[in-house]
Design a protein around this nucleic acid. Structure first.
Lengths: 198, 198
DNA sequence: GCGTTATCGTACAAAATGTACGTTAAAATA
DNA sequence: TATTTTAACGTACATTTTGTACGATAACGC
């Protein structure tokens, strides 16, 4: 653990806070580096001592917020990876996390941001899922692990994104339950479908 | 049907082709309007006679390519919306369509593009699905139609995006089948799971 | 053929970017 | 506390891209 100059930490925190405040005010795309450093009360040149561009700052900011979720998730998975209760808990953690920072995340996931943060989040989820799937031998899987991971991550993120954009019309608990139900059993027992499935 | 000056059609086609060629060469983000008009052998000022910015051109270009898919899909749905065979065909159409233009789509969906085209595509899919679901009375649905549509669209797009980025390691047919299976029945019968589902 | 108008050719102002460098002041260290 | 280190300031400058303007030219529709 290297020691970092307090001034550096302070500057980065100011930039992070300014970015979040401005994203909520005007959306990510509109912002210039000048805007951000103005809000943070720093010189524009100072920005370049820390980040190459707007995107790098955004990703660093997101990574910070995301680390909380990662830690919770990993301590949870430590117990027993694929049990039904654990799954529900994992979904619930995710929805609660997004709820707590919904103003930021709804802008980000929305794709208002030029940067595709959702992609990064999806990649993290996929890695997490592949790790969990790695414990079970591949011959027990009827489909490739990669496909399963992409499916689960994609479905969850789609529901999460919609939920935020729609103004969170259901509770995090309800969303977690619906998400688990759909990912586990699909739409077959939810829709009145003809039963000619291959 | 208004008649459009042939010069206008020609110019827009040139811009569209230049955009696609340059995206494949260097990625969307790198491009300036000057680059595009250079490639198209047009004046930069001419660009602004047709589109407000890069994004508007991209969306128009995508819409064009997308219309093919839309027409196929709508004629398919005309028959009987939710039958198993129809579902599989719908997935297959989508994967084949993406396959035919995979170089463009893999760049676009990847999120290399600053614009979140995936969002637009998802929105279209959701609208299509909501239309299909509208025929069935809501009290027969165990979950809100909106949630179901978001789930299906999200899962399909996730698998499609992954497939393209991974270099299409399976056939479109295989992908359509896996997608249908997962969306219909989830992961429960694919994973060796404990059976304590709520 | 004749009126219409899309595109050309060129120009200009404004905004944002990326970098440079001496100065100031806060932090780390001894 | 004294000294060294260095982050941030303050300012400047070249470059790139953008958006718009406008008369001239040539292709188009009728």
């Amino acid at each position: 653990m290297e020691k970092i100059d307090r001034r550096v930490l302070r500057t980065r925190a100011l930039l992070r806070d300014a970015l979040i405040a401005l994203i909520l005010e005007r959306g990510y795309d509109e912002l210039t580096i000048q805007d951000i450093t103005n809000k943070a009360d720093l010189r524009r040149a100072t920005f370049y001592l820390h980040y190459r561009d707007k995107e790098e700052l955004l990703l660093a900011t997101l990574a910070e917020s995301f680390n909380t979720l990662v830690r919770e998730m990993e301590s949870l998975i430590g117990s027993d990876a694929l049990a039904g209760k654990t799954q529900l808990a994992a979904f619930l953690i995710t929805f609660r996390h997004a709820e707590a920072q919904h103003r930021l995340y709804s802008v980000i996931l929305n794709g208002q941001s030029g940067v595709v943060v959702a992609q990064h989040i999806r990649e993290y989820l996929v890695r997490l899922l592949l790790g969990a799937l790695h414990n079970t031998p591949p011959e027990q899987l009827a489909l490739p692990a990669e496909v399963l991971a992409q499916y689960i991550a994609g479905a969850e993120l789609a529901l999460l994104t919609w939920w935020l954009n729609a103004g969170m019309p259901y509770s995090a608990q309800q969303m977690a339950e619906m998400t688990q139900r759909l990912i586990l059993h699909g739409v077959a027992d939810v829709l009145p479908l003809p039963k000619n499935t291959p």
